[in-house]
Every structure is written in structure tokens, then in C-alpha cells.
Design a protein around this nucleic acid. Structure first.
Length: 880
RNA sequence: GGGCGCAUAGCUCAGCGGUAGAGCGCUGCCCUUACAAGGCAGAUGUCGCAGGUUCGAUCCCUGCUGCGCCCACCA
């Protein structure tokens, strides 16, 4: 067995830099930018479709070109970058596909707000000029986003950068649209849709945000005398469009009215009373006003009873009915109409506060208006079935698995998807209408029939239509490109759980449809949302949002990345605060200084690793631990446990390598000779591997240190460490004992009030403890002088078979020592009592595993020994 | 109304049948020539409440309370 952990046996170069190249503090700002540009120039991040290596593909969830990136993007990018960097090191042909999303309605709104500030509207510019203006905005925003991604260190294939509205992706959109149109999966129909009176467009069901709003429920009497009925509503203005009153078919209270017509107040119309099972007789009066043109349920009732929808509001929510209310905004109309009804004595119970959930536009928060409208739809059922089955059949894994239930609930209950938007920024619907009412759908490169009078549909597609094609459109589809062949399906999709429906489900549907049933990824890894340091949701209105650039400037990109990765437990939200970023920066600095120290002491990666027989126990111990950590790290990576892997590496590096191994080797280095050479090589090895393990998460500091340490080109293309299988349990036990001895004596010293630097004469009895070889290290770490003339032990500490006798006659505080020993005695007695009780428990002995029983036996023996020892010490202590 | 999840140290969170853990914060001592962005040592918890299973429960089961998220509906 060998302790060599190198995956590739190639020798390192000899031009190892000197520690003089490294300043005493890590200054991220000075290295990060240069390193990134170098990586890009060398083409490390580009993906070669012709490569013989196995592919590893992740497409970026394309950021919206609505401005700049927020901390949530930095989080997502950190995870993706770490995954791809590791796979690249593992020898995969990795593609992190970059790109951005035109984000139809969101971006159009941003530019419209800009125009509004100039006192203009998009109509002042006209469609072509407005779209041109949005392209300008896109260039600006896109540049900012790309800059932020570079700062963060994202290893994306810039050579393959795409945009949802670039030529190729637009062809993909048109190709899919045409194919689905021909397959009758896309159709046009008039339905009640969610209409935003501010954005002036239809939106789909999932773009509706429901909020509880304070409303008022008013009860209104329709009809006269015997033939009257009371209905309740929060939207009195819609009564102008009422087409019926509905009651439950079995409701005897209204049986006499069914089939009759009653007078609609404030109008000269009368409306029928219809029986409909949708009505809940228990709710309110059991009678419902029916407004088919302005309510989805009412529309359904209307269809069942052949009622004509009566539109009373226009696209801006203004009343269009001739009469006293014409021209009023919907909210003005509501109060005005209630007042008018009251004047006529129609309000039978005063309006009362009523909290109910109301749909708002997810983009501009305006209260939505259900509206009857002609729109384009995707027939979702067959696609959703296939998308659901892909997960059910195990072709695609959703991680964490709990979220797959949500996915199924959604794809199994989908309504058809409204894909047309009355916007200007987006992919125009490729349908043309002829002068004689003809309709043709065009594929790419097809022209509308010649002749006068052909016009293209003025609507654009929902932005999620194009992003739904992202996993293959970015690879050149519909062309049969080499990239498509190599990199589809994608290996993993990394995105937030908030996009499960908006984006993930759509990609699944389009993927299985367009790519012959092959779903777009093997694994869907869903992460949570970044929250503030108190776990609160970040929002602009709350003022707790974070610009990642600010922290990157202050603490470095690595610090931001490490903080984000450390918080990433699968599927759960990630709190982040500045103090944590600082702590990560401290870690980067610690790694920096440890490496600096190592280089100053002759740590090297030159030559083969010495044989274990030549090594000290601490050498073998740290290599044993190192290999165990490699395996642990791999397991966490494969399970997307970023917090766990970050934590593991953080503690291994800081606690074990820096605080113990480096400290223990100091004495070896001081003495020099062959043991120092061996430890220098081991330390070089440990750092080499550790830096490679850390690189995917903290790429910059590791690159600087690793290239200095090894003299090689770049850790980006270094081999990912492999567990050599080297383990040395004896060494691990030995060093564990050593640590106990040192900690115990340190505690004693601290309890005695000794200054850390104060040197104390001591006699060490280490025979038979395996610690004999560590005497020098023990003395160095504990500041113990050799026992000189007149040595008189005043304290004797037996630890793990060893005894450390100290002459504290110059410094000791006997009263404090007595107090400490008394306390220890109490603890030991308690321990003895507990363990004795446990071992006297037959049930425990019968069922507990052997190792647990053995552990408790050992504990009892230790407690007995402690009691004896402490009692003896107390007895021997001079009374002050 | 349906579904999912959470309640552990002051804060943010791991752990999940066998003496409670981390980071930050806190206390004390130290500029011990890699690092004060550091070192060493230390304190802090009825593991939400009530039952149950078990030799043993923070961990499993049931109920309760509080909180969060998703979906649907709300005249």
C-alpha cells in the first residue's frame, strides 16, 4: 500500500516559486481579475463537442436582462461553478452553457419605466423604435451581468454564449411553434384570461400572485317583491355585466324563481335565474350573481346555460357601458355603483369588511382583471403526461426528492397554457392572417402567401416559451449539431425551487416533445432562496437585499462563494450575512498563510512521496485523514450537499492540517535532516491535494497558492484528487492520544493562570504510550523546559497512560488547583454513577451493540481511575 | 380546504435511538517570528408542549401549539 494520493503520476515542474512571492495577507482584489482573464484566454472553460471525454453539461438558468445580478444569482452560480469545476478536474468535457433571457414582460416594463421618466410611452416611439430601444437596454444590462459573472469566477463557455432572442434561438422557437401548431398542440381560442390592466396583456395562471386584500362584501337585492333575490359581492361594478343569478338546483328557497327573469337594478335589463350545482347553498344567501365576461367561474356557468357574456370593462379597466358610470375606473365605479344602489334601497345589509384573496400581476402588482379574450394556447395534457412520466419512470431525478411531489401535483393538474402576450418585446407569433380570413402558421424561412392584405399576428410569445427550449436550443437545435449530439441531455439542472413550475416543468414538456422523448436532464437539483442573516426573505421594499459586488469588493469572490456554498443544504433556504462572509474571508487568509508558512519551511511537491516507514506518525496520520476526506468530499458532491462538503473541508483544513499537523511538524522542521525532508514532502502533498479539493468552491485563492506551490500551469485543469486508500488507524490513535495529552495539560496551565508563554520545568514519562517520539513536540507546544537541577514536581498529570509532572513551585496557586480538582472529582463521580447504573441495566446489556457497551465500560474504568488520581492529588496538595 | 416542511446554545443552522454539535457572538489569557483576518483555554441548551413505543427518545409514533412554503377555492 502506498500513501500516494496523486491521481496522475506526472512530476511537477521545478520552477516552484518562493514564499517571498506571497505577502502576509491575502489580498483578493489583486489576483482575482487577472486570474479570471487568464483562464478565459487559455480556453479552460470552452467545451469541445469533438472531445473524446465524457460530457458534463449544465445550462445556466438564463438571467433576465432586466438589470444586474443579485445575491441569489451568485448563490446559484457558485453551486454550478463548483460542480463543473470538479467535473472538469475529473476529466469530463464540461460545458457550462452561458446565456441570458429576454424576459419579455419584465424587460419591457423596465424600459417602459425608463421612457415614462422621460415623459414618453412606447406608443410615442412605435413598435419598431421601441424594440430597438429595448435592444439597447439589453446590451447594457447584458454587459453588466457578464461582468458580474466574471467577477464571481464563473467558468462558463463564453464562446457559446446565447440569448433567447438571438437568431438561432428564434429559429428554434419558430420551429417548435410550427410543429406544435401542425400537431394541434397549439390553438387559438377565446377564454377568460388573467388580464393586467397596466401591462395591457394577458398573463398565464402561474404569473398571478394571490394576496389577501381587504375588500367589502355588499348584499344587493335583485328583482322586486316575491320575485327578488339577494346576492353578495365584493365587486359591485361587475353587476352591469350580470347575465343571470344562479342558485343551487336543490335549493327550495329559490325553487319558485328558477326559470323566471328578474330585474337587474340600475339597468333596464332583466336576467334569468338559473340552477347550477356550482353554487354552494350554505354560502351567503345561496344566490350568486353571474358575470360571464369578468369571472372565470361565471364564464363556466354562462357556458352551461347559454348565457351571453356582457363586457362592461375595457382593457384598462374602465367602464364601457353607456350611462352614468361610463368612463369610470373599475374602483371608482365600484363605490359609485354601491352608492347608487343604496340610494335605490337595494343594499340590504351594510357592507362589511371581507378579507379575500385577489390576483395581482406578478410583474407590476396591479390587481388583475379576468377578461374574455382571444389568445393562443398550448394544449398541455399530452405534454404534461410525458413530463410527469419521465420523473415517475426514474429517467429524471428530482433532488431533494421531497419536491417531486410538488412537481407531480402540478403537471398532473395542469390547465392549458396561455402563451400569447400583448407585448412588443418577444418572439412574434409566426401566424399570418389573410385578407379573406385565412390563417397560416409559418416555419423559419417561410414567407406568407403573396398578395395584398396579409398581416402577422401582433402578439408575442410568453417568455417561458423560449426558455423552455433552453437545454437544446442553446446547443444549436433544430440543426443536428455536434454540440447537441455531445451535450444533450444536460447532466444536471441547477435552479431554485421557485422555478419548478415556471421553467423546469416547461423544459421537461418541450424536451420530451422536441427531442424524441428524451428529457432534457438526468438530474434536477433544486436549491433554496437566499435570505438575510435573520432568515427573512430578501426584498427591495424591505431594504435587506444585497449586492454581491459590494461583498466581493470587500472580502473577495472566494469569501462570498464559500459563504454561499456553506449555507447550501438541499432545497432549503440560505441565510447570509456580512459577518459570515468575513468569516469565510478569514478562512481564505488562513489557507494563504498556512501555505506561505509551508513554503518557508521546505514543503514541496517534488519527487515521489516517501514510504510510510520513513514518515512520522503525524505524517501518516494526516495522509490517512486526507484520504478519508477525499472520499467524504466526493460523496457530498455526488449528493449536492454543498454545506456538508464545505464544512468538511473547512474543518479538516483549519482544525487538523493547520492547527495540529502544521504545529506538530514545526519541531521536525527545526531539527532538519531526513525527517524534515519527509515531512516537507508530506506537507506539500497535503496542501496540493487540499487546494485541489477546495478549488471548485474557492477558485481564486487556491489557484494562486497551488501554482506557487507546484509551479504548474493551473489548478483549473489539475486532476481531481482520488483516495489512494491509504489509512493508518494506529497513527490516528496515536495522534489522538497526543492531542488529548496536549489539550489536557494546556487546560491545566490555563486553570492555573499560567501565561501561555511561561516556561515551566517538567518531567515527561511517556514510556509505553507510543508518545515517546513526540516528546520534543509536546515540550514545544506546551512550553515545557527540561527538568533542571532541583526539579520538584508539584503537579502530576496522568493522561492516557503518560504522566506529565510539572514543577510549578514558582507559579502555582494551590487554592485554585484544589478548587479545580474538587470540581473534576465531582464530574468523575457523576460519570461513575451514570455508567454503573447503565451497566447494571440488563435490558441495556441485552440489546445494546457490543461496541456501545464496551465504550461505556471504558468510560466507567476511566472514571474510577480519575477518582483515584484526583483523590491522590488532592491529598498531596499543600494547604496554603 | 389539500399538500409539504420546520420548531436544538444569544443569532443562523447541522445532527437524528446510546453521555448534545458547528459558525458567528460571549468570557479569560496571549502581538508564542505563517496568520490579531491569529493562537490557547472556557461558559452557555428542561433539543416547542403532552402522551406513547423502548432497557434507553432530541432522534420513532400520536395528538397539541406556534411558524413557514406550495397548490386550489373563496359569490
Amino acid at each position: 500500500m502506498t500513501a500516494n494520493t496523486q491521481q496522475d503520476p506526472e512530476q511537477y515542474g521545478s520552477d516552484t516559486a518562493t514564499p517571498a512571492d506571497l505577502p502576509t495577507q491575502y489580498a483578493p482584489a489583486e489576483v482575482e481579475g487577472k486570474l479570471y482573464e487568464r483562464w478565459v484566454e487559455r480556453g479552460y472553460f470552452e467545451a469541445d463537442p469533438k472531445s473524446g471525454k465524457p460530457p458534463y453539461t449544465i445550462v445556466i438558468p438564463p438571467p433576465n436582462v432586466t438589470g444586474s445580478l443579485h445575491i441569489g444569482h451568485a448563490f446559484e452560480h457558485t453551486l454550478i461553478d463548483a460542480l463543473t469545476r470538479r467535473k472538469r478536474m475529473q476529466g469530463y468535457e464540461t460545458l457550462w452553457q452561458p446565456g441570458m433571457d429576454h424576459a419579455g414582460i419584465a424587460t419591457q416594463n423596465v424600459v417602459e419605466r425608463e421612457l415614462a421618466a422621460e415623459g414618453k410611452s412606447r406608443h410615442d416611439l412605435g413598435r419598431a423604435a421601441f424594440v430597438e430601444r429595448v435592444w439597447q437596454w439589453k446590451a447594457e444590462s447584458g454587459g453588466q451581468i457578464a461582468g458580474q459573472m466574471r467577477r464571481l469566477g464563473n467558468g462558463v463557455a463564453w464562446g457559446r454564449d446565447r440569448f433567447t432572442m438571438d437568431e438561432g434561438l428564434s429559429r428554434a422557437v419558430q420551429t417548435v411553434f410550427k410543429r406544435m401548431y401542425d400537431d394541434e398542440l397549439i390553438y387559438r381560442a377565446e377564454r377568460i384570461i388573467n388580464w393586467c390592466p397596466r401591462c395591457l396583456t394577458a398573463i398565464s395562471d402561474i404569473e398571478v400572485d394571490y394576496q389577501d386584500d381587504d375588500g367589502e362584501l355588499v348584499s344587493i337585492r335583485y328583482g322586486e317583491g316575491e320575485e327578488s333575490v339577494v346576492v353578495a359581492t365584493t365587486r359591485a361594478e361587475t353587476m352591469l355585466g350580470d347575465a343571470a343569478v344562479a342558485v343551487h338546483p336543490d335549493d327550495e328557497r329559490y325553487a319558485h324563481l328558477v326559470g323566471k327573469r328578474i330585474k337587474l337594478p340600475l339597468t333596464d335589463r332583466s336576467i334569468p335565474v338559473v340552477p347550477d350545482a356550482h353554487v354552494d347553498p350554505e354560502f351567503g344567501t345561496g344566490a350568486v350573481k353571474v358575470t360571464p365576461a369578468h369571472d372565470p367561474n361565471d364564464f363556466a356557468i354562462g357556458q352551461r346555460h347559454g348565457l351571453e357574456p356582457i363586457e362592461v370593462l375595457d382593457e384598462r379597466g374602465i367602464v364601457t357601458v353607456h350611462g352614468p358610470f361610463e368612463g369610470l375606473d373599475r374602483f371608482e365605479a365600484r363605490s359609485t355603483i354601491v352608492a347608487a344602489l343604496r340610494a335605490e334601497g337595494r343594499i340590504v345589509s351594510e357592507k362589511r369588511p371581507y378579507v379575500h384573496s385577489v390576483g395581482h400581476c406578478s410583474r407590476c402588482k396591479t390587481t388583475l382583471e379576468p377578461r374574455l379574450s382571444m389568445q393562443w394556447w398550448v394544449k398541455v395534457a399530452p405534454l404534461a403526461k410525458a413530463a410527469g412520466d419521465a420523473v415517475r419512470d426514474g429517467k429524471v431525478d428530482i433532488h431533494p426528492q421531497e419536491l417531486s411531489q410538488r412537481y407531480f401535483d402540478w403537471v398532473d393538474n395542469l390547465h392549458d397554457w396561455c402563451i400569447s402576450r400583448q407585448l412588443w418585446w418577444g418572439h412574434r407569433i409566426p401566424v399570418w392572417y389573410g385578407p379573406g380570413g385565412e390563417t397560416v402558421c409559418l416555419g423559419p424561412d417561410e414567407q406568407p402567401p403573396s398578395g395584398e392584405g396579409w398581416t402577422q399576428d401582433s402578439d408575442v410569445l410568453d417568455t417561458w416559451f423560449s426558455s423552455g427550449l433552453w437545454p437544446f436550443s442553446t446547443l444549436g437545435w433544430p440543426e443536428k449539431t455536434e454540440a447537441l449530439e455531445k451535450f444533450y441531455p444536460n447532466s444536471v439542472l441547477v435552479t431554485g425551487y421557485d422555478l419548478l413550475f415556471f421553467w423546469v416543468a416547461r423544459m421537461m414538456m418541450f424536451g420530451v416533445y422536441a427531442m424524441d422523448g428524451v428529457p432534457p436532464f438526468h438530474t434536477i437539483a433544486l436549491h433554496g432562496m437566499v435570505r438575510d442573516e435573520h432568515g427573512k426573505k430578501m426584498s427591495k421594499s424591505f431594504g435587506n437585499t444585497v449586492n454581491p459586488l459590494v461583498w466581493m469588493d470587500a472580502y473577495g469572490s472566494d469569501a462570498v462563494r464559500l459563504t454561499l456554498a456553506s449555507g447550501a443544504n438541499p432545497g432549503t433556504d440560505v441565510p447570509i450575512g456580512e459577518d459570515w462572509v468575513k468569516a469565510s474571508r478569514n478562512f481564505a487568509n488562513k489557507v494563504w498563510n498556512a501555505t506561505r508558512f509551508a513554503l518557508m519551511n521546505g514543503a514541496t511537491v517534488q519527487g515521489p512521496l516517501p514510504a510510510p516507514e520513513e514518515m512520522t506518525a503525524e505524517d501518516r496520520w494526516i495522509l490517512s485523514r486526507l484520504n478519508a476526506v477525499i472520499t467524504e468530499t466526493d460523496a457530498y458532491y455526488d449528493d449536492y450537499q454543498f454545506a456538508k462538503l464545505s464544512d468538511t473541508l473547512y474543518h479538516f483544513a483549519w482544525d487538523e492540517v493547520f492547527d495540529w499537523y502544521v504545529e506538530l511538524t514545526k519541531t521536525t522542521f527545526q531539527k532538519g535532516g531526513r525527517p524534515a525532508e519527509v515531512s516537507g514532502r508530506v506537507l506539500g502533498e497535503v496542501l496540493d491535494v487540499l487546494l485541489r479539493l477546495l478549488h471548485p468552491v474557492v477558485p481564486f485563492v487556491t489557484e494562486t497558492l497551488w501554482t506557487t506551490l507546484t509551479g504548474r500551469e493551473s489548478v483549473v485543469i489539475a486532476a481531481w484528487p482520488a483516495d489512494s486508500g491509504f489509512r493508518d488507524e494506529a497513527a490516528e490513535r496515536e495522534i489522538g492520544t497526543l492531542q488529548r495529552v496536549i489539550t489536557e495539560v494546556r487546560r491545566f496551565r490555563a486553570d492555573q493562570g499560567l501565561q501561555p508563554g511561561q516556561r515551566v520545568p517538567a518531567r515527561l514519562s511517556l514510556d509505553g504510550t507510543s508518545l515517546a517520539a513526540h516528546e520534543d513536540a509536546i515540550r514545544a507546544l506546551l512550553r515545557l523546559e527540561p527538568e533542571g537541577e532541583g526539579f520538584a514536581a508539584t503537579a502530576s498529570l496522568p493522561v492516557a497512560g503518560a504522566t506529565v509532572a510539572l514543577d510549578l513551585s514558582g507559579a502555582i496557586d494551590f487554592a485554585a488547583e484544589r478548587k479545580r480538582l474538587t470540581k473534576d472529582l465531582g464530574l468523575a463521580e457523576k460519570e461513575l454513577k451514570q455508567t454503573t447504573a447503565k451497566l447494571g441495566n440488563d435490558g441495556f446489556l441485552a440489546k445494546a451493540p457490543d461496541d456501545v457497551v464496551a465504550k461505556i465500560r471504558t468510560r466507567r474504568e476511566a472514571a474510577e481511575a480519575d477518582i483515584a488520581r484526583i483523590t491522590e492529588q488532592l491529598a498531596g496538595l499543600p494547604t496554603a
